[in-house]
Simulated assay, not measured.
Amino acid sequence: MDESDVEYAGFWVRVGASLIDSLLIVIITFPLLVSLYGWEYFDSEELLAGPADFLITWVLPAVAVIWFWMQRQATPGKAALALRVVDAESGSPLSLAQSIGRYLAYFVSTIPFGLGLFWVGFDSRKQGWHDKLASTVVVRAKTRGPQPVRFPRA
């Protein structure tokens, strides 16, 4: 990847990508949950309705997101907005370990009132805590931007 052709993707475009991804997850999981558990599922105060609930709401999204990062360098939402998730040092595609680590690090980013996600808006490389922990950056084709992309080891 030629770093002069890309820039760091900022907070708002990443929010847009997350909204697209969240909508897709709801479109897929909602009918599955209703077909298996009925409408009563949404009235329940239980954390999990059963094993299928765990698979549909936790495992399926995790596997899908990690697969998209590994195969396409972007989830559908990021791809729709021409964003890519890459290694912060080289600009290369993510490793499996990086992808899993980044996914798990999202929980770290959200626990303190989402501060690790909002961090994207203030960081010079537009990295959230999950990006920093997994050594990743989100980039897009350069159109404008606060700072050019520089990978320390290319």
Rank of each mutant, 00 (worst) to 15 (best):
S4D: 14
D5A: 10
V6K: 00
E7M: 04
Y8H: 01
Y8Q: 01
A9E: 00
A9I: 02
F11C: 04
R14N: 05
G16N: 01
G16V: 05
A17C: 06
I20M: 04
S22T: 12
L23W: 08
L24T: 02
I25Q: 09
I27N: 06
I28W: 13
S35T: 11
L36A: 09
Y37N: 08
G38S: 13
E40S: 13
F42D: 13
F42N: 08
E45S: 12
E45M: 12
E45I: 14
L47H: 06
L47K: 01
F54Q: 05
L55A: 14
L55W: 02
W58F: 14
L60A: 15
V63W: 08
I66P: 04
F68W: 05
M70V: 05
M70P: 00
M70D: 02
Q71A: 13
R72H: 11
Q73I: 05
A74V: 10
T75G: 02
P76C: 09
G77N: 05
L83W: 00
R84E: 15
A88W: 03
S92V: 13
S92Y: 11
A97F: 15
Q98I: 15
Q98N: 08
Q98C: 13
I100S: 03
R102D: 14
F107A: 08
T110N: 10
I111E: 06
P112W: 09
L115W: 08
L115G: 09
L115R: 03
G116P: 06
L117H: 05
F118S: 02
D123V: 00
S124Q: 14
K126R: 05
Q127T: 07
W129C: 08
H130A: 08
L133S: 01
L133D: 06
A134G: 11
T136K: 02
T136C: 13
V137D: 07
V139W: 02
V139L: 10
R140P: 11
T143M: 07
R150W: 10
R150K: 14
F151C: 09
F151A: 13
R153L: 14
A154K: 15
A154R: 15
